[in-house]
Nucleic acid binder design. Structure first.
Lengths: 379, 379
DNA sequence: ACGGCCATAGCAAGCGCTTTCTATACGCTA
DNA sequence: TAGCGTATAGAAAGCGCTTGCTATGGCCGT
């Protein structure tokens, strides 16, 4: 029923081998023959059988992009940028069969679940993916990290390029762990693009401190995530350097953890206000959380930034449009994603040492202002 | 180098056939044998060769989800919901080989380009995808529609389930066009979930009209997109019914087209203000565009909604958090996406007639108010 | 105690393509 | 004209898996 290479060959009066060569364009074929084959392909509406091709050639053109939450623009932007560098271009027009060095970039949504992350990695390994890009923070459970590292080592061993984007490099102690085989080709190894979450967070809090804030609440992301930890560490570095660590009993008093969503920001801010009515600033784990924080403050009748300043992280597109505009830390998501895409396709050389740090830029906007203009009298 | 089925078979002292059957669990195998095989699989860290498996079994477990813009939460939400219904579950743990009815949901970003849409469809056809979900509005170019319809017909013919989510059903005139083969199994045909864009837009504009607005600007999406057209038609229906069609010279005077992004909303609003300084309301093609519109109005020193009301569409998560909160039309993106996922996996029966309409609900919030409170005196 | 059955396991034939190696047919040079 | 190199096409051997069919036992019925 479906058209095969052999059918095309028969119609073009050539051998299957020739058709294959025409389609792959990696072997000299006389112009007239090529013509004939191409016509047959069109006539028959032939479409290459991917699995068969991948099996015979022992390669595939799949590039997997793993994201923690596809509904979050943070990941969407990176994934989109990466994908734009990878495949789907070349207006193929009507012809169906050929597609040169085409790679199929596919994004896989782990939903932040460790199991799904592993499952997708296995599935990609099954498909003998050409490359895998892991985006966003990693989960810090030791067992899981080891499992992921082992899987990535195996993937790399099998010729899959592995690129991390916005995720810290794998501890080298975990790599090469597998069977002691030692990684084969030094070409398919891991490259990592790490975001300067810590530095960005530090500068953000320094900004707040410079404005006179001392009672600063921190709405952190989920625990056990590198992103969460790094941003929090940056915040605390700044606080410690200014000698304002710990509001009262412990240093954690003004830190609340929660998922990276609006609701979390809302609830956590209410909680912070309960713990410290004299709060003059709230730093959120990211912009979406900051949105929730703003809503909570407003619902409490507090003005931003007159009563309480608010800051986010990531500088997602909507952040400039909030009222007041959100002070945040800009991460060049698009650029990083694009670069990851190029690294994954081998179109760009890996940075020295395999790791490149991506700078985070403080964006001061209207949601942060001097402390104490109105705040002190509250409570 | 890589471990094959045969290796596992050798180690487990059984035939390759038996290993295959253990892994697929579709044939009786004695418990003790199964044990032995599974141990061998674990010992060897065996991972099934996807392409080989797909070739031999003539099926694949890929489900493609096509989106127009992965960085846009509109698509991210639908894709995430669909994916959650499809695959990646079952905490597989350490074992690598087996994965029962696992399906790999992959999302492909067309970026709104017709060529890429076709390319991805071809690529998925190559992979013999189990199903394809197309999300969001379609491009209305006749040639392209025909090409897509032909491709979908061929996919369906090849056993791939095709589901449309947020996209109008294919004109039946275009389906079955291909080679006149007639579609084989009536099971793999198309199901469509259409959004009531027209009705939602109509109700939204009616709401504005009820508030006394007459000079209403419309910032439409890109031309040649079904979503754009339907929403615009709904708007005009309402305007016509109220007898306020056409501000001055032509009916298009207060309509500006542009991409579905913030910048477009900003620019278009400025343009509308230029054309009609007495504008009292702006309806945007979607929430993101509305964000830009708000920014433009504010930059012009106009208050929302006192001077100008603003409305969006989709009710994306951030819309409730803008200041003032955005009046918009809620589309149940999550539910629709999840349903599309279930339809794609055959876990839910297709609706009667293959088409189901998804309701759009008007969400009245703070960004719209009575006309004329301040506006009339401007200009 | 013997024939027949069910439960298991193995054999072997592909699935549709790629690719190495071999064959053919030129166009040259000597 | 004979010899050889080059350009092009074909034959065929897999790639690693699935699966229809066949083979082997142990167990049952009588």
């Amino acid at each position: 029923m479906t058209v095969t290479l052999a059918d095309v060959a028969a119609r073009a009066q050539v051998s299957p081998a020739t058709v294959s060569r025409v389609l792959n364009g990696n072997y000299p074929v006389a112009a007239t023959t090529r013509e004939r084959v191409l016509r047959a392909v069109d006539d028959l509406d032939y479409v290459l059988n991917g699995p068969a091709s991948a099996l015979a050639a022992a390669t595939s053109d799949l590039v997997g992009i793993l994201v923690n939450d596809i509904a979050d623009p943070f990941f969407g932007i990176m994934a989109g940028a990466a994908q734009s560098q990878i495949g789907g271009a070349e207006g193929a027009g009507s012809g169906a069969g050929r597609a040169g060095s085409e790679k199929l970039a596919i994004v896989c949504n782990t939903g932040g679940s460790p199991e799904r992350e592993l499952t997708y990695l296995t599935l990609l390994q099954r498909q003998r993916a050409a490359a895998v890009i892991l985006t966003g923070g990693a989960i810090e459970d030791p067992g899981h990290s080891a499992a992921v590292a082992a899987k990535l080592a195996k993937l790399a061993d099998g010729g899959t390029r592995v690129v991390l984007c916005g995720r810290p490099p794998l501890p080298s102690s975990l790599l090469g762990g597998g069977d002691g085989e030692g990684n084969g080709d030094g070409d398919a190894v891991v490259a990592a693009l790490t975001f300067d979450n810590r530095g960005g967070a530090r500068r953000l809090t320094e900004h707040l401190l410079a404005l006179g804030h001392r009672r600063i609440g921190y709405v952190a992301g989920p625990v056990e995530r590198t992103t969460t930890r790094h941003r929090l560490e940056g915040h605390r570095e700044a606080m410690a350097a200014a000698g304002v660590l710990g509001g009262g009993t412990g240093e954690d008093e003004l830190t609340v953890h929660g998922p990276y969503d609006r609701q979390s920001g809302y609830d956590a801010t209410l909680e912070l206000l309960r713990r410290e009515p004299g709060l003059t600033a709230v730093v959120a784990a990211n912009d979406t959380v900051a949105l929730g924080a703003c809503a909570a403050l407003r619902d409490r009748g507090l003005r931003i930034p007159d009563d309480v300043s608010v800051a986010g992280f990531d500088d997602l597109p909507f952040s400039v449009d909030t009222v007041p505009a959100l002070t945040t830390v800009r991460l060049p998501l698009h650029e990083a994603g694009a670069r990851a895409g190029r690294l994954a396709t081998g179109r760009e050389a890996a940075p020295p040492g395999g790791v490149a740090s991506v700078a985070a830029e403080l964006m001061v906007r209207g949601s942060t202002g001097r402390a104490g203009r109105a705040g002190a009298s509250r409570g």
